[in-house]
Design a protein around this nucleic acid. Structure first.
Lengths: 214, 214
DNA sequence: TAGATTGTTAATCGATTAACAATC
DNA sequence: TAGATTGTTAATCGATTAACAATC
């Protein structure tokens, strides 16, 4: 595998999508596909698909195309999905609970080790067999456990403080659902899910389409 | 305002973020800001900020900068946030409920008119004063109500069918949380929130950082 | 007016697409 | 082998950044 350190984020964002399509093809017992056929399915140009994949090595074979099983495995490995990740969720409101459920049912490599909240009504509950702990215990918990990913489901005002604690506690990545931008050292990965921003873009396109109609 | 129909999506994705920062500045009673100061806050170059804003018109003033209140209002209007949107949520599991709560508390212009599910245990419940209706009634509901946005919180297998019904029912936009790609006419806006893909990118960057360390 | 800062054009940079030689 | 299709280089396209004249 080549040096991955300077591959553009545009490429990385497409990898999970390739993987989803390859997963479905695998389920259908298809065993090979050309960049051209994949292009028709997924909507990227065949040229882009070949360029993207060649960032990581030559996974195809001239005259044949790509073996679906092995390409799926390669992409999974590139993304690091052959590993396990221990996570904590901070903020156990509806969204925190939804994420806990989601990762519980769908994402086998991603384990929620604990959830934290300040609300006494939530502390002590078990959600999908995951204990909700007092936020006061976060520092101690981080000291006694190796946690890879911190998931921020708090409001925007608490988010930075929580992130600071999690980073001090040794997480390698932050999955942020709070509607704010976070400051953290750039050796810790950060992925934002800004639901507000997403909804606001949607509103823009709704109106743009309206204008086109009239 | 200029013709917005060919503004790149890179620009549009930045608008909600500008708006967030302007909102905070407004709260702090700051009344003007230069592209340079805003650049220091938000992290885009001053040049990009000026380019972005000038896609929609000259909102600044030479020698002065931008008036925060009025720029905030302009961006809100560009995004269509001066309007109301009626929404339905299909799929009332944890995620559907979280979205209902979220829009209920934070997003005053976005009203959830109804929620739908196939699960008899959920049908009839009220969540934040929003009724959970039988999915069987979706078509009829859409006939009798004007709904702007359909929110997909189903599993991936049901998503396309739901979208087809919503589009037939006249929605102008789809906010998709199901982990699949949807087909719809391009006069209907589509915004995807692919949580899987997001988590998978995070995993990639965690591993890339690990490699750099060693 | 002088200084500041925009609006806008030009230059650069990066990402996508096209083309084709290599090769299975 | 001949046909198909990749891997990779070159060309194009688009987005970002730099520069500066316009102007408040």
């Amino acid at each position: 595998m080549k040096d991955n350190s300077k591959i553009s984020s545009a490429v990385i964002k497409r990898l999970p999508r390739y993987r989803r399509y390859l997963y479905d093809l695998q389920k259908k017992n298809v065993d090979r596909i050309s960049s051209n056929e994949l292009s028709n399915l997924i909507g990227y140009t065949a040229s882009q698909i070949r360029q993207d994949l060649n960032n990581f090595g030559g996974f195809g074979q001239q005259g044949y195309g790509y073996n679906i099983q092995s390409l799926y495995n390669e992409i999974s490995a590139i993304l690091g999905l052959d590993q396990e990740y221990k996570m904590v969720i901070v903020g156990t409101g509806n969204l925190g609970q939804a994420i806990a459920n989601y990762t519980h049912y769908y994402k086998s490599g991603f384990k929620v080790a604990a959830m934290f909240d300040v609300n006494p009504k939530l502390i002590g509950l078990r959600i999908n067999d995951i204990e909700v702990l007092d936020y006061e215990m976060l520092d101690e918990f981080m000291k006694n456990n190796t946690i890879d990913i911190g998931i921020i489901c708090t409001n925007k005002d608490s988010a930075q403080e929580v992130v600071d604690k999690l980073c001090a506690g040794g997480v390698k990545g932050i999955w942020n659902f709070a509607p704010t931008d976070l400051n953290l050292s750039d050796d810790i990965a950060l992925e934002n899910v800004h639901l507000s921003d997403s909804l606001h873009s949607l509103a823009y396109y709704i109106n743009r389409n309206k204008q086109k109609d009239s």
